[in-house]
Amino acid sequence: MLERNQLPLRPAAPGFAIAWVVIIAGASVALSLLLACIAPFVALAAVSAVVLPRRMAVTAVLIAWLANQMVGYFVLGYPQTWDSYAWGLAIGIAAFASLAAALGVLRLSADLPVTMAGAFLAGFVAYEGLLFAATSLLPSGDDAFSPSVVANVLLINALAAIGLVGLHAAAAAGRGLVTGHRGPAQA
Results as ranks from 00 to 15, higher is better:
residue 168 H to W: 15
residue 89 L to G: 11
residue 40 P to D: 06
residue 50 V to S: 00
residue 7 L to H: 07
residue 175 R to F: 06
residue 70 M to N: 06
residue 117 A to Q: 09
residue 118 G to Q: 09
residue 183 G to F: 03
residue 120 F to W: 10
residue 157 N to H: 04
residue 150 V to Y: 04
residue 26 G to P: 01
residue 31 L to C: 06
residue 150 V to D: 06
residue 119 A to Q: 07
residue 187 A to R: 13
residue 62 L to R: 03
residue 173 A to R: 15
residue 132 F to E: 09
residue 127 Y to G: 01
residue 7 L to I: 03
residue 2 L to K: 07
residue 125 V to M: 08
residue 117 A to G: 11
residue 87 W to I: 00
residue 77 G to N: 12
residue 131 L to Y: 03
residue 152 N to E: 14
residue 139 P to F: 04
residue 17 A to H: 04
residue 185 A to S: 13
residue 122 A to L: 04
residue 33 L to C: 10
residue 165 V to N: 00
residue 156 I to S: 05
residue 186 Q to H: 14
residue 92 G to L: 11
residue 160 A to C: 08
residue 120 F to V: 02
residue 77 G to C: 09
residue 160 A to M: 06
residue 36 A to P: 10
residue 147 P to H: 01
residue 77 G to M: 07
residue 3 E to F: 10
residue 54 R to A: 12
residue 15 G to V: 03
residue 42 V to C: 02
residue 67 A to I: 09
residue 56 M to S: 12
residue 166 G to I: 02
residue 140 S to E: 06
residue 17 A to F: 02
residue 182 R to H: 15
residue 126 A to W: 08
residue 179 T to K: 12
residue 86 A to F: 04
residue 84 S to P: 08
residue 112 L to H: 08
residue 73 Y to C: 10
residue 114 V to D: 10
residue 101 A to Y: 07
residue 90 A to M: 10
residue 124 F to S: 02
residue 124 F to W: 09
